[in-house]
Design a protein around this nucleic acid. Structure first.
Lengths: 385, 385
DNA sequence: CGTTCATGGAGAAACGTATCTCCGGCCTCC
DNA sequence: GGAGGCCGGAGATACGTTTCTCCATGAACG
């Protein structure tokens, strides 16, 4: 009552616009102070249930919706986390076309929502600087290259950053990655057991973590078992280049009798190339590729794929990020933990905590010499020659 | 200089925390007022270039980043637009698994970024109320059902809403939809020309616009040409139900000799069902389904698909929404148009402006009796009688 | 009967920006 | 020589919350 006139004084003098009801209007209507309204609505403070419910009722009646902007300004929390991929640089969203990123982004969105956050996908750079216009509580960065300026900038300005892909040389809060080395070794071993004598690799020319680690693991394995490396690298961006590289690989004088392709389209490309050269899969050529697509379950023959389990990655990354956001106030390093005590361990000093997630090898006909079903197909004539 | 002490007084008395530089710090360091800093950085006001560049330089040196939260509070614009689908209700993100939604969302995100906005995907409802925590300049709603409470609430609170799918009975700012009627008629005509005598439909039980309009168009066509409708409806959510429905359709005594399936998996399901019943495609059964997937280019036989061109839809919807946001101040209806004059026509009163977008029929072997390559199949017996 | 607590709540200070209003000075023009 | 017009910029206010601080009241307790 007494407060009403006071609180509304300013508004009353202003124009009589029919705006949305503010917290002051609720306070006036309920005959309490705005403090009480805020406390009642947010479940804080010490208030008798009667007052609480009365205030809630009035707020409901007035159709009061708290201003997210004001709340964000006051609390410093926006409930928004960003997701971006910096590696593939300029062109926005070519990346979402990769099944891995699409699925990962979906899982990340879902995980964020499950914890009350919303996720916004942002490009590494754009004309309008969207980044500076949006209050972010934290950011997930997919596969940041060494010395990524964006990551450095974000981290320096106090925004927690969690990366998918072990970061090269950027300061991140935490990171998650597949155990690429284990995955590649597992595949090579699998192919060896299936009878492969010379295993080739179809890899990329870019320097992202995935490509680099996988290739290194392959080379190390070759070195260890004494096989001469047989690989072709191509720019993974270019869909046409993949087919050419697959062809090149099978055209080599030291043609491999088994191939692992690092990228999604490699399976069909290699299959097509094999067909051109009259190579039967899996009889003459064992095939494995990394893919999240289930079309490889229905190709002829079905192709063994390595799944990076992007959903699991996306979920983990987001949870790690939100833990960091809610655990410590990143800027000053002072633990706030009032409302949200850190439920997971929080990184102290030292290297950022990383988590390695396992991959999954879906073994299909293309990487097994003895297929269960006996086929009646006659030996095919060599390709197109 | 003189201003510096004043402006910083408050901050100086506060704790000496090493926070991010604010606009006041920049003003103090540059020896100007915060007004000048704001104007210089935002390209407004009348300032000599020398001052402008000096302020920019100081801001850069201090690593000044304007607070997005404060800007949002002040300007009432967050640069954020929401994307949600309400029809499929409770479960978040089952929808993104449909290729249509995934592609549409991708295009929408890209279009938004292209105009300086970020897009955040939100569920129709969730435990934590993410909606109220986020300042949205507008929202894209996919296929709102009649009387959608969310849409009504949004619209009432002054947030522009543009829907993908003609809205049943909700007040929206604008809407975009495919011309489903034309699409279905086109398909039926195409099938007729290919020799179909009795065309069946695989449809859904839900009441969304797409399903409803398509089914109605089918029924109307049947009525017009004097064919008895032959269709099966199933809950489109349930992937298993689709296969069962496809089977049911082909098991009917009045078995159709051509089928159009409204949903993505119908193609493979129908193909499998046809195989079970010993029906050859396209010889005994013509097939078309609505899908955005290109796997149907490689099935045996390739299946004719209807594409709803989700990318085009997503782009259009977002552009319409942003036009509305920048065109008029939705709450009061007063045109602000200071910075952003309405470039497109703005809806006055009356029904919300809607746009119908064409679809695209990708004709493949499954819907053509005479395939280019000469087949050796014998002439078929008429109908089934 | 005086002191301490717990209860219920009010006041006011931020949060950091954009922008409206206004002011002094200088130039120009009659 | 005075009056207006333009330039460059300062002051102050408002955006709508959250939250820190503090006060009044009564009850409990010695």
């Amino acid at each position: 009552m007494t407060a009403a006139a006071n609180q509304n004084g300013r508004r009353a003098t202003a124009s009589r616009r029919l705006e949305r009801a503010g917290i002051r209007d609720v306070a006036a209507a309920a005959g309490v102070s705005i403090t009480t309204v805020s406390d009642a609505l947010n479940g804080k403070g010490r208030l008798p249930d009667e007052t609480r419910s009365r205030v809630r009722e009035v707020a409901e009646r007035l159709g009061y919706r708290p201003s997210a902007a004001a709340r964000t300004l006051r609390t410093g929390r926006s409930g928004l986390i960003g997701l971006t991929v910096t590696t593939y640089g300029e062109e926005p969203f070519t990346f979402t076309e990769f099944a891995y990123f699409a699925e990962m982004a979906r899982a990340a969105t879902s995980a964020a929502l499950g914890r009350g956050y919303a996720l916004v996908v942002l490009p590494a750079s754009s004309r309008h600087d969207v980044w500076s216009n949006i209050a972010l509580d934290g950011t997930v960065v997919i596969d940041p290259p060494d010395q990524d300026p964006l990551v450095t900038e974000l981290y320096r300005s106090g925004v927690p950053v969690v990366s998918d892909g072990k970061p090269g040389n950027c300061p991140v809060t935490a990171w998650v990655d597949n155990d690429h080395e284990a995955a590649v070794l597992n595949i090579l071993e699998h192919l060896s057991e299936a009878g492969a004598r010379r295993i080739g690799l179809l890899t990329g020319t870019s320097t992202d973590t995935y490509t680099r680690l996988s290739t290194e693991a392959y080379l190390a394995w070759c070195d260890r078992v004494g096989q001469e490396p047989v690989y072709e690298a191509y720019p993974a961006h270019d869909p046409a280049a993949g087919a050419v590289a697959a062809d090149r690989l099978l055209a080599r004088p030291d043609r491999p009798d088994a191939v692992y392709g690092l990228f999604d389209p490699n399976g069909t490309d290699l299959l097509a190339a094999a067909r051109r050269y009259g190579l039967r899969v899996p009889d003459d050529l064992l095939l494995v590729c990394c893919s999240e697509s289930d079309v490889y379950a229905n190709t002829e023959p079905p192709i063994t794929t390595l799944s990076l389990k992007p959903r699991r990655i996306g979920t983990t990354v987001v949870n790690l990020l939100i833990d960091a956001i809610e655990g410590v106030d990143a800027g000053t390093g002072t633990a706030t933990g009032r409302l949200f005590p850190p439920r997971y361990r929080t990184a102290g000093t030292g290297p950022p905590p990383g988590t390695l997630m396992p991959t999954e090898l879906l073994v299909r006909a293309s990487s097994q010499r003895r297929t269960p079903r006996t086929t009646v197909s006659p030996p095919r004539a060599p390709g197109e020659g």
